[in-house]
Structure formats: structure tokens, C-alpha cells
Nucleic acid binder design. Structure first.
Lengths: 155, 155
DNA sequence: TTAAATTAAGTTGTGTACAATACAATATGA
DNA sequence: TCATATTGTATTGTACACAACTTAATTTAA
């Protein structure tokens, strides 16, 4: 008795690591959304601000390396942050290919309003500090592996 | 001696679980890209096809529930799959609000060409089967938690 | 049994992502 | 030194994501 063709387990949605991560990422964004709305940032813009709050100033390239994003994504995003009065964009005088991104006083001040967000997210995920640290370490390791694969594929 | 304002650890990029997952998701998509190019699918389209290869037929709403996507994302994506000749879209006769999505012969046949992809991805991530299963379980658990939070936030 | 509520898709507008390309500035080497 | 290659950013075009809204079909509840 011949069965109808069945999907092998490797092609089933519930066994896809990539899909679980992809869905997880989008659900996390939704968890941030209401809090980010209050300070007028999108999730991607928030990530850019995190980098700038740490470094005060960096180039578009450095932002891209930190966030795994290219100029095609960052340029319009940064223009919107500039239009919102949060950052400055100016050509480097030393190397005119580079564009230096820095915080305005308003952009710096916004960090205070963002302080409460990580706590709200911890509530949302209901992870203990130990679980959080464990997961972060494992996911960073996975990110490093996949990124490494992509690097070597592109050579 | 007053230090200059420093970023607290909770706001540092390297401590963000959400960012690690977000970056991981995009790096995974890049890992799939060259293989999906060969069969003419985008990553999101591949996920839709995974569901259809399993179920043969379902509504837009069911697809959305499986993939955590809404009709605003799915409708244009499905129209592109239809234009590519891989699926059919037809109103349900029982309930004309519903649109039934089903595979064409060509769409069904494409599963054969996709069979090799999971193996290629396993190479790319260099995860042992045990590591894979462990990570999948942890991500699924996290996804369930965050999704649950989002459900209760929207009430 | 209808008026009100709910449901399922589609539409519109904004904001990413990213490949491919363009271009100007800088670095390199014969 | 000057032609070539590389680098850093911007631009263009395609494809998501998703909120907000619209429309039509179906439920429901008074």
C-alpha cells in the first residue's frame, strides 16, 4: 500500500530553527513597540540609539558593523533620526568618504527616557536573570557561527 | 570626582537578547538566500511553501496563524506566488470571507527541489543534532513566552 | 429577524532590509 | 605619478512587516 507523498521532518515548519528565531525576533519587536512609541523610536532606530549612547560618535560603517546592517538600510534611517533632531550627520574632514554620526543634546537626553525599557522587557519575557544570561550566551554563539558561515560564503 | 554619564549595562547593545535574536534571524536569511535563489523563492515565500507542502490547502488566516503574519504581509506575497504559478487563490464557497490557498502541480513539485536545503543549512550552522534540538526547544519556549505576553498586552 | 458586532481579506502608508549599482575620495603599486 | 583598485556612502528597486483602515460576509443577540 503506497502512502501519499509525505513531508519529511526536515521540511516541517515546526522543526525549523530559522523560523522559530525569525518569529521570535518579530514578537520581541512587538513587545518593544508600545514602549518605543512613547519615546518616538522604531525598533531599528532604538538599536542605532543604543550604539550612539555608548559611543557618542561613530561612522555609518561602524554602525553597520555593530548592527549587521548596510548603508542601504542605515542611510534613510539616519536621515529620519536627523529629521527628528536626535542626531547629526556630517562628513569627516580627515576622510571625506566617511559620515560621522553624533548625538544632539536631545538625542543624548532621550537615553533617560529609555532607561525603563529593559525592565519592562524583562517582565514581558518572564526570564530569570540566570536564564537570560544563559540564553544570551547561546544565541550569541549561534549568531557568531552563522555570521562566520556567511563571511566565508561571500569569499 | 564626578564620572561622565555612563550607559548602564541594561542599555548596552551587547547585553540585548532581542538584538542578538534579530541579528541572528537576518544572518540565517542570508544563509538561505543562495539556495532559495536557485528555486526562485524569497525566505518568506519559502516559509509559506513549507506550510502548504504540509497541509496542501489552507486559508490566509491559517497561514497567518502558523507564521505569525497578518494579511497585510501575506496578501501581496501570495499574489506573487500565484503569479509565479506555484499556488492558487480562490474564495471559499462555504464562507466567502475566506480565501483558500492551494498548491499547483508546479508548487507541489518544487518540494523536491527544496529537499536539499535543510542539509545545506545544517552544514552552515555547524550544529550537532543534539545542539540543534536543544536550541530549537529553547527558542520555541522563548517564542511562546513573548507571544503570550503580546497576546495579553493586546487585551 | 434584523441591527450590531465580529470576522476574513484587502488596501494604504511608513519603515525597514538588502542586492545591485553609482560615485567620489583615498590608497596602492608599477 | 598616475592608472588601478579599494573604500565609504548614497541611490534605486524589490520584497517584506505591520498599523490603521475599508469592505464584504457571517454571527450574535435583543
Amino acid at each position: 500500500m503506497q502512502e501519499e507523498t509525505m513531508t519529511p521532518p526536515e521540511l516541517m515548519l515546526e522543526n525549523q530553527l530559522c523560523f522559530t528565531i525569525y518569529a521570535c525576533s518579530r514578537e520581541f519587536t512587538k513587545l518593544y513597540q508600545p514602549h518605543l512609541d512613547k519615546i518616538g523610536l522604531t525598533y531599528s532606530q532604538y538599536l542605532v540609539m543604543l550604539v550612539l549612547w555608548e559611543r557618542r560618535q561613530c561612522t555609518v560603517k561602524e554602525l553597520g558593523e555593530a548592527l549587521f546592517l548596510d548603508s542601504g538600510t542605515l542611510t534613510p534611517l539616519l536621515k529620519r533620526l536627523q529629521a527628528a533632531g536626535l542626531i547629526l550627520r556630517e562628513r569627516s574632514l580627515q576622510d571625506e568618504r566617511k559620515v560621522l554620526i553624533s548625538l544632539t543634546a536631545q538625542g543624548l537626553a532621550l537615553q533617560q527616557d529609555a532607561m525603563c525599557i529593559p525592565g519592562k522587557m524583562a517582565e514581558g519575557t518572564m526570564l530569570s536573570p540566570e536564564e537570560f544570561v544563559g540564553l544570551l550566551g547561546q544565541f550569541k554563539d549561534l549568531l557568531a557561527r552563522v555570521h562566520e558561515s556567511n563571511i566565508s560564503n561571500s569569499k
